[in-house]
Write a protein that binds this DNA or RNA. Structure first.
Lengths: 363, 363
DNA sequence: ACTTAGCACTTAGGATAGCTGAGTGCTAAA
DNA sequence: TTTAGCACTCAGCTATCCTAAGTGCTAAGT
């Protein structure tokens, strides 16, 4: 049975009406809508056909129809008109992205919060491809005889540091030797490339400073591990309660608990550029079988990609959400500027900086 | 009307029974309880008296009694028996605190999450007294002609850094001059002490490097600001839904939204050492008038204190919660070890470190 | 062959009434 | 002062009815 133009129109109208009202849609309501010049009886026939084809469902005999996940799918793929964001919306989003930002993790966390805030759905944010990160530079700074700071800069231009306290004294020359050794042997290696072999080589070169070097290397590995550990940041789970499908506390609680786990990162397939929609049973996780997920990804640079997304009932305003997410993702891409450097507000506040030095800065 | 021993016993029994079951407690249920050798009629009389005194309330004529906030108060102050944590509980908590920890903010965040996890209530964590933090040391590291890293160490031994990119070239001597200037003029100052006067002095001393210095100073101020900005970390709001008093979605959502704001820090009075309980209307915030808050604070060192706490219905297991919180706070105190240094797992994982250097380390 | 009007049929969910049982307050006796 | 007994109250459960929205089908119209 082919999908006539009218039936497509009807299906679209039903989906949009249902998205708005959350109530099963009857034939009369559709008939009254502009653009459709036929009676409710005609609509009824078409609705019956659409149901037979699997695009609609009927909660019970005497109720209207609601879209099935197949119905939502065709809506998203073919029927949906792309939403244009209003100027206010884009302005609000732009403003929020002007925030003072520092570490990669904080940016990602913040991105999740903003997405949730702008969509009124629970949101999550994560970064992928972190296994490629290496350390490109070490600096050791002497603090006093028994302590020093190690500063390590990663290939993503993130700089991390750590203060070390030692039980024995160290000297400046010792530290310099160590520094040189680190920079020659332990740069440009991914976490996977740190091996016992590497340590053997280092042991020979370092001699008596071996203990020291293993401390620092262990820190370096922590930095990489930290960077690799792609935690998922979730935010705004409470927004679930705003939607009628989660008036059931039990249901809401289940989903919230699921979202609170932190190993959901693997669940969402990489969406390339642009947005992706996973409707109900298209989700692999059992817990998400009757929810939808909308994803967008953006370029962080240095082989890494960020992913932002929202979770909600299948009855979701896909048009609006995809528009918002993709706008957000675009801006995040711009924010990262292709060079893996995190932009930051340049002007010092409180004291004024001379013009000629106001500049992009990173941490 | 004085509070006889029996009435105290009855009150305590009612509170504990209600805490457990969340249902109004009747005279018969109490009479059956061990330790009370009298009939339900006697209990009824006493209950009526306790109600008149304001310790109990009656939801409606033919129901049992529930404790009023005054009732909870006297329970917490005088009647409650202090809960002893089981070995499993303390072990679980100890284990969780062994986590690899880095920055102060992360520790605090993590503390909040753990508290929520162990109590099954929404929890929050924050740090107080951050206005006293100063920068004790600067190091500038040249990366190339147009960029350098600034490393700043605070009085709380937190080390922060930032990568600067400049539009013009700089030289090593320039950087060293700058470095010296920073360390003489801009150390030991709280954020409030950074002033335009200070900048004037610096301008004279720095000469042509003034632009540069203002960039770095602005970073230093950001660090202090960041440190001062005592964000409240909240976690586990979803746990509200587990309690019968929040089966009402509207109510749960309201409270969750309130907890999601980030300016609740000021709401909770400093509790000195030990724990503090705020019952229902004792809370200043309108939104918390029918919830209780349990707080514990711990020493971070350097004039800072951390606060952890949970929020929940007034019907809360105060004995258990205060026990858990105070145990947690004690351990956090120990963790910070009085010297404002964040301990961290000493053993590198993957590569073994020699014994003689395994040591406390901080960032 | 498609569309439409009419009509009988279905059913969720709201309103109403009645019932039950837990719990109370009061009285009077121990 | 305590206790037994008893009449009274009332939330909340159950059963029943009713309504309104929506359907599917049939038959007539285009």
């Amino acid at each position: 049975m082919e999908l006539t133009a009218r039936r497509r129109k009807i299906l679209r109208a039903i989906v949009e009406h249902y998205i708005e009202t959350a109530e099963p849609v009857g034939s009369k309501a559709i008939a009254k809508l502009a653009g459709l010049e036929c009676s409710s009886a005609t609509i009824r026939n078409d609705m019956a056909a659409l149901e037979k084809m699997g695009y609609l469902e009927q909660p019970h005999t005497s109720a209207g129809r609601i879209p099935s996940s197949k119905g939502y799918r065709i809506y998203v793929n073919e029927l949906m008109e792309h939403h244009k964001l209003s100027i206010q919306e884009t302005e609000r989003m732009n403003e929020s992205l002007q925030l003072k930002m520092r570490e990669l993790d904080r940016v990602i966390d913040q991105a999740g919060k903003l997405v949730s805030q702008f969509t009124n759905y629970p949101a999550f944010a994560l970064a992928e491809g972190r296994e490629q990160v290496t350390i490109v530079r070490y600096d050791l700074l002497m603090v006093n005889q028994t302590s020093f700071i190690c500063v390590a800069m990663t290939s993503t231009n993130v700089v991390k540091n750590k203060l070390f306290h030692l039980p024995t004294d160290i000297t400046e020359p010792q530290l310099q030797l160590l520094n040189a050794l680190l920079n020659t042997s332990f740069t440009g290696k991914t976490l996977a490339q740190f091996s016992t072999d590497l340590m053997e080589t280092a042991r020979k070169a370092a001699g008596s400073s071996y203990g020291l070097i293993s401390l620092v290397v262990s820190f370096a590995m922590d930095v990489l591990q930290d960077s690799e550990h792609s935690a998922v940041h979730t935010a705004g789970a409470r927004h679930l309660l705003e939607h009628p499908e989660y008036q059931d506390v039990e249901k809401a609680h289940k989903l919230m608990s699921y979202l609170a786990q932190d190993d959901l990162g693997s669940l969402f397939p990489d969406s390339g550029d642009g947005t992706r929609v996973l409707i109900g049973p298209e989700n692999v996780a059992e817990e998400l079988k009757d929810t939808s997920v909308v994803l967008a990804s953006y370029d962080i640079g240095e082989g890494m990609r960020g992913v932002i997304g929202v979770v909600g009932p299948t009855r979701m305003d896909y048009a609006k959400i995809t528009a918002k997410l993709s706008y957000m993702a675009d801006n995040l891409s711009k924010l990262f500027g292709g060079s893996a450097q995190l932009p930051e507000r340049a002007q010092p506040k409180g004291l004024k900086a001379p013009e000629e030095h106001s500049q992009k800065e990173e941490e």
